[in-house]
Design a protein around this nucleic acid. Sequence first.
DNA 1: ATGTGC
Length: 485
Amino acid sequence: MPLPKDLIRISPTTWELPVTFKKGMLVPARIIASEKLINAMEDAVFEQAANVACLSGITGYSYCMPDGHWGYGFPIGGLAAMDPERGVISPGGIGFDINCGMRLVLTNLTEEEVRPRLHDLVNRLFSRIPTGVGCHGTLKVKESEFRHIAEQGSRWCLKKGYAVAEDLELTEEGGCFTGGDSAKVSNKAIERGLEQLGTLGSGNHYCEIQVARPENVLDQKIARSFGITIPNQVVIMFHCGSRGFGHQIATDYLQRFLKVMGPKYGLSVTDRELACAPFRSPEGQDYYAAMKCAVNMAFANRQMILHRIREVFSDIFHRDPFDLGLRMLYDVAHNTAKLERHLIDGAPRELLVHRKGATRSLGPGSPELPACYRESGQPVIIGGSMETGSYLLSGMTGSNATFATTAHGSGRTMSRHQAKKLFRGDRLQQQLEQRGIYIMTDSLGGLAEEAGGAYKDIDEVAAVTELAGLSKRIVKLLPMGNIKG
DNA sequence: ATGTGC
């Protein structure tokens, strides 16, 4: 597929569509990619990044990260910073799975210690962490309790004994976006959420046991400061979000925005999927307060899953989970919008940063970071496929250009439908087992959709983020065992 | 992504 002829190469890793690319663009669109990745990008990414550049109040550039691909309205990998006074908030810039995110957990166990118990561990994780569409959690809460969870996030877990203080310190925003208001959430969304705490979900959501081999440690010093200190150290990475709760909130507000956008606010968009409302309007503020509830539910969901992981490892090894070194490394959101301060032309400005399939990546010295990571920069977790592995990186100061943002995953190269035609889940499971990767799933079709071959080259994506000055590769993590929906 | 949709 030929690249758009207006596309300009700004640097080895930055490509730009000027405002002349499409009528209505207020700022240029920039795509962070190598030559290989830009050539593999779907046309839809260019169109969608340009559509986002037309949204009121967009500041600087509309961005797409190197793992970018086609999404609902915004590309997945999309980033837009809005002026909060003049700009809009758009659910399509956050995604249906609000606060879908990654959490990385340390252990002090080695591959040699874990391998003999791998099947037991994976089987037990699979039975303790519900997976799949429509799965229900082992914890059901009352509506009033759920409203607290939606407003407090991980803080609720700490109060109930499902977290230790350090878990919250090592979660983006302390595991709670303040200002969540459950009165702005529909009863339907709350009903869907009641039984979803501690559940993984489906699609590309998974929980993986991984190993950090010495040859894959790329920066010894920062790796040590992140707690990767022993050869062949085992870690646990998982990926999930706000389940049906967040999905319902996104659906509710997309409908509401579509009704008022034109008639009440005179906003027109190139694509209905970019439904939006002025951030300072009642509708915009209601969505922001409801979205924060979904963000908080997702933080609490990941915290409950961490609690289950601690129980499982403790059961299998007959030791206290903290003796096993089951400590947080970090938790990053990758589907949110939030008010953040960024330097624009040398002056600090508050901006509403939409990240959709994009990770915050604060560089060294950022005051928002916990003290233990202030020197290194923020841990960034880029999840790859179960075949090819994942990366732990650290934020770099070059990310000032992208509102402190980097990639979030490897990014699909083909649709789920195509992947299902090309790969077979049962065969994949067998092949991976032969390579020492044990997978439990209740959907072999879903497994085929997540085949490594359906994704971009994770090594290339991680390398490009480093070359672009967004995030530095610290450790490549290889899969040993995986549960998925 | 999603009690998977026109």
